[in-house]
Each structure stands twice: as structure tokens, then as C-alpha cells.
């Protein structure tokens, strides 16, 4: 096998970690957005404010690696035994929810108070007010910051090998050992990560454009 064939096969070998990386990132961000929005709405309505403040502060104040290893190695003692993928998704989701809750908080506070009052005067029930009036507007306004959070999660997936997960970075390390060279495998891993980030930015811009288009119809 010549060198160029070997480079191509190594590139695809590293790409074998892509589904794992994607599953972690997508699962993590979905849980993060759901939990983060929920925490922000509950806190805004004064429900469990002190407890939520404490949780958010603790999650932001401790390293992600600690949270990840805690979920994977300690939680089984409390009866929650998860495989590497689900432990990773849960860790990313919970960690991200703290940051997303803060992003949503800022978004909610920046929305004109009149939007809440207009919903109230129209006698729209609170659940529908949040679901159909407030959160859609907040989500569109904070979309660029949410995309940053997604990009951060994608890059953070590189720590998953700590608990035995085999994603892009781990694959790159394995290829490096075979090739006795770190340069090309790391460049290949960087290509995957950077490609994912560019893809997210592209999707984000499409959504923003659609939003502007819809508004100017």
C-alpha cells in the first residue's frame, strides 16, 4: 500500500469516531437546551430560585472532567450505571444546562416586559405564553450564543477518552501510535472538528437568514 492510500485510510479510520462525537454533542446540547430553558423559566417564575441558583453556580464552578468522571465512576454506587456514551451525553447535557440557563435568563430579561403583559391582557394561559410567545422569541434572539455553546460542546467531546470513549481524538491517538507520528493524525482530527464547527455555523446562518426573510415578507 502506498503512502497516499495509507493517508486516506487513516483519515477514514479517524472518521470512525465521528458518529460517537456527533452523538455526544447532539445528545448533550438537546438535553442542555431543554434543561437550561426549564431552569431559566422556573427561576424567572420564582420556583425553586435558590436551589436553581445553587445548581447553576455549582455546575459552572466545577470542572467538566470532574462531573464526567463523577457520573461514570461514582453514580453506579447510587444505582445509576451508564455506558460511556450515555454517561457522556448526560454529563454534557447537565453541564451545558447551567450555561444555557444563564443564556436563556439574559434572553428572557432582554425581552420587552410588554410581551408578557400583552399575553396577560389576551388571557393567554402561562404555559402557552412561555411555549408560543416568550421562548420562541428568546430562542431566536440567543441563537448565536447557543451556537457557541454547541461549538464548545463539540470541542469538549475530546475529553471523553478519559472514561474510555472512542471518538475522533481517541481514534487520532490510536492512528498516531500505529504511524509513530502525531502530525498527520492530529491534522486529520482537526479537519473533522473544524468541519463540524463550520457546519454548525452554516446551519446557524441559514436559520438567521430564514428568520430575517420571514420577518420581511
Amino acid at each position: 500500500m502506498n503512502e497516499s492510500n495509507s493517508i486516506i485510510s487513516d483519515f477514514f479510520r479517524i472518521g470512525g469516531g465521528l458518529p460517537f462525537t456527533l452523538a455526544l454533542a447532539i445528545g448533550g446540547i438537546l438535553i442542555g437546551i431543554f434543561l437550561g430553558a426549564l431552569l431559566a423559566v422556573l427561576r424567572y417564575n420564582g420556583i425553586g430560585r435558590w436551589m436553581i441558583n445553587g445548581i447553576v453556580s455549582f455546575l459552572r464552578g466545577t470542572p467538566f472532567v470532574l462531573q464526567l468522571t463523577f457520573i461514570y465512576f461514582v453514580m453506579p454506587k447510587f444505582g445509576l450505571k451508564l455506558n460511556v456514551l450515555w454517561a457522556g451525553i448526560l454529563a454534557f447535557g447537565i453541564n451545558s444546562s447551567a450555561y444555557v440557563a444563564e443564556i436563556f435568563r439574559a434572553g428572557i430579561e432582554n425581552l420587552p416586559k410588554g410581551q408578557f403583559e400583552a399575553a396577560k391582557t389576551l388571557e393567554i394561559p402561562r404555559f402557552y405564553m412561555w411555549k408560543d410567545i416568550i421562548l420562541p422569541q428568546v430562542t431566536m434572539n440567543i441563537l448565536p450564543i447557543l451556537l457557541n455553546e454547541m461549538i464548545d460542546i463539540i470541542k469538549m467531546t475530546a475529553v471523553i477518552p478519559m472514561i474510555g470513549g472512542i471518538e475522533i481524538m481517541r481514534k487520532a491517538q490510536m492512528v498516531s501510535l500505529i504511524r509513530c507520528d502525531y502530525f498527520l493524525p492530529l491534522c486529520m482530527a482537526a479537519t473533522y472538528y473544524y468541519g463540524l464547527v463550520l457546519l454548525i455555523e452554516f446551519i446557524g446562518k441559514k436559520i438567521e437568514k430564514r428568520k430575517l426573510y420571514a420577518k420581511n415578507l
Binding site: E117, P136, Q137
Partner: peptide, 13 residues
């Protein structure tokens, strides 16, 4: 009773 706001407060989305 219904209220018409000074800045209308239509739902922009």
C-alpha cells in the same frame, strides 16, 4: 377589559 399598549406589543414572530 382589553388594553392597547403605547408601543402595540404585537408578537413579532
Amino acid at each position: 377589559v382589553c388594553f392597547m399598549f403605547q408601543d402595540f406589543q404585537l408578537f413579532p414572530h
